[in-house]
Design a protein around this nucleic acid. Structure first.
Ligand SMILES: [Mn+2]
Ligand SMILES: [Mn+2]
Ligand SMILES: [Zn+2]
Ligand SMILES: [Zn+2]
Lengths: 217, 217
DNA sequence: CCTTGACATGCGAATGATTATCAAATACAT
DNA sequence: ATGTATTTGATAATCATTCGCATGTCAAGG
């Protein structure tokens, strides 16, 4: 009573496109590439087929911890590393399979059917001196606030404040600079710590004299 | 310049409640338990605090492949198994740490900072002859539809529909039966295929005469 | 006591990834 | 060629999680 698969054009292209990827694309990345060949394809179709193809074992679905699923044309059993900064995923050769910490089949009453090993760290790109760093929350900002200068982003935010006649919120700055408001509010917090902006009213901020002088450096 | 944490009542209760859990609850499960002590607490507060507590190392955040995050009061380094059927998560003692397949630090140019090992399989409960089975997609349902009868779960759902005056959605049934709504909607799909429920409007279902007669067997 | 300001909370709305729904199109066994 | 089960595209729904914001709390200092 297995339902049989049809080889539709879209299914073929999806498989083909994944196979010519050396990387481990997400459904969405694949969708973007496939749209060039099949402009009318739906994202749902991509998801559907990746699911089906992995069910029948033509491709592998990678479930990297807590993030987007990725897909692999390589159905051989192998492990992966992912970069905690840019989320890139690569294959990684593990020492030997005989070395796997697999305990006797029955553990805690579980009937174990598999094991996933994930390494994580920084990819070659992200090891380089921080450039387009992802936000890491307050910790990062604390570091930055130790330095005397202003990051490009902070300067941008501060300049937006300088242009404003009255105290304004993070949303206004976001609109003025085109930055994400999340990022903006982080920057505001940092600027506030440095004393370059102050908050006359809750959730509203304005540039301080210190901030103004900072800008003119 | 680290921001200092306050031990608020809700934070205390959240930590306390997690610590008295032998399991690895999700934020939502914890929220449900905590609501009994703090009925006015917000789910966002639970999330926020679990995040903060794990950041400062008082608890551990588990990122089990592709599903809900779970939390662990135990900050010792240890591995986990999860059941592919019911998604329960348990600790699992691995043979010896010396046996980990950790290759030399530099692999593929990655600077590896960690490794996660996840075992999966069937928990003791789910090894028993299928009872409260999780959805497995159409394949499973096709099988079920070959059988003449109704599973316990399906009967439960169908009974809930029988009690309803008007067409209702999976959420309503979930509420009425106390089942997960995801599970419910799978059951509805199966029931629809069997012709025991029909969909007068998108996303709303009602019991059919066939369904009613099925119930009276 | 009465302010302040940093930190926290509750609420609701937003987000992002994925899945479900359903009418219309299509593949493919007969 | 035809009937029908499968598949598609478009879109709405779902689910877990996070964000924005007004409000609340509390320790420290007038
Ligand atoms: Mn791979
Ligand atoms: Mn544990
Ligand atoms: Zn990277
Ligand atoms: Zn189980």
């Amino acid at each position: 009573m297995e339902k049989k698969l049809r080889m539709t054009h879209q299914r073929e292209i999806i498989l083909d496109e994944l196979r010519r990827c050396r990387s481990h694309p997400t459904a969405d990345e694949l969708y973007e590439r496939i749209k060039k060949k099949l402009p009318r394809i739906s994202l749902a179709t991509v998801y559907r087929n990746l699911e089906i193809l992995s069910e029948v074992g033509l491709i592998t679905k990678l479930e990297i911890s807590g993030r987007q699923k990725r897909f692999d044309w390589d159905v051989q059993d192998h492990d992966h590393v992912y970069c905690t900064e840019c989320h890139r995923v690569d294959n990684i050769p593990t020492a030997t399979t005989t070395c796997l910490p697999v305990d006797p089949d029955q553990q805690k009453g579980y009937q174990i059917t598999g094991c996933r090993i994930e390494f994580y760290g920084l990819c070659p790109n992200c090891q380089k001196p921080r450039k387009v760093q992802k936000f890491k929350g307050d910790k990062d900002m604390a570091c930055k606030s130790c330095t005397t200068g202003l990051s490009d982003t902070q300067r941008q935010v501060l300049e937006a404040f300088a242009k404003s006649e009255e105290a304004c919120g993070s949303k206004d700055i976001a609109a003025a600079t085109g930055m994400e408001s999340k990022k903006v509010s982080c920057q505001i917090t940092a600027l506030k710590k440095k004393g370059f902006v102050s908050s006359p009213v809750r959730c509203k901020y304005e540039i301080t004299d210190e901030g103004k002088s900072q800008l003119s450096c």
